[in-house]
Simulated scan of single mutants.
Amino acid sequence: FLRTESHTDENGRKKLVTLEDTDIAIPYSSIIVAVSQGPKKNIVSSEDRISLEKWGTVIVNDNFETTLENVFSCGDVVTGPKTVVAAVNDAKKVVANILKKEELI
């Protein structure tokens, strides 16, 4: 992961800037990348310890942790179709919660 900051330029446009020498590594066993407009049942259908809502979206707690400990989720698979901005915002919260849980921050 790389830390970033939001900066506003002289025209009032916001720009995300990567901070130098802020990279950190977090050990993981797997990553699921999903790009879609809704949850794909096959993503979690093979893992019965991850609970789903009746609409097929993944159930998470306030920290975005699924019902399978140490597995986090966000984006369309949790909320249903929303914007990329919403998914990225939730992804930042997921990373912060993972770092907090692992006492990395």
Results as ranks from 00 to 15, higher is better:
2 L>W: 14
2 L>G: 11
2 L>R: 13
2 L>H: 14
3 R>H: 10
5 E>M: 11
7 H>Q: 12
14 K>I: 12
14 K>F: 05
15 K>L: 06
15 K>E: 13
22 T>S: 15
22 T>A: 04
24 I>L: 15
25 A>G: 15
26 I>G: 09
27 P>E: 12
27 P>Q: 07
27 P>D: 13
28 Y>V: 13
29 S>D: 15
30 S>P: 02
33 V>E: 04
35 V>C: 11
35 V>G: 09
36 S>R: 01
36 S>N: 15
37 Q>I: 08
41 K>H: 11
42 N>G: 01
44 V>M: 14
46 S>C: 10
46 S>F: 14
49 R>L: 14
49 R>K: 14
52 L>S: 01
54 K>Y: 08
54 K>S: 14
56 G>T: 02
56 G>M: 01
57 T>I: 00
59 I>C: 07
60 V>C: 04
60 V>K: 06
62 D>W: 02
63 N>A: 06
64 F>V: 01
65 E>Y: 01
66 T>L: 15
68 L>D: 13
69 E>P: 07
70 N>L: 06
70 N>P: 02
73 S>G: 08
74 C>N: 01
76 D>I: 08
77 V>L: 10
78 V>S: 03
80 G>C: 08
81 P>M: 11
84 V>A: 14
85 V>G: 05
85 V>H: 03
86 A>C: 02
87 A>S: 14
87 A>C: 08
88 V>M: 15
89 N>C: 05
89 N>P: 00
90 D>M: 12
91 A>G: 15
93 K>N: 07
93 K>R: 10
94 V>W: 02
96 A>D: 11
96 A>E: 10
97 N>P: 04
98 I>F: 08
98 I>P: 11
100 K>D: 09
101 K>M: 07
103 E>V: 05
104 L>W: 05
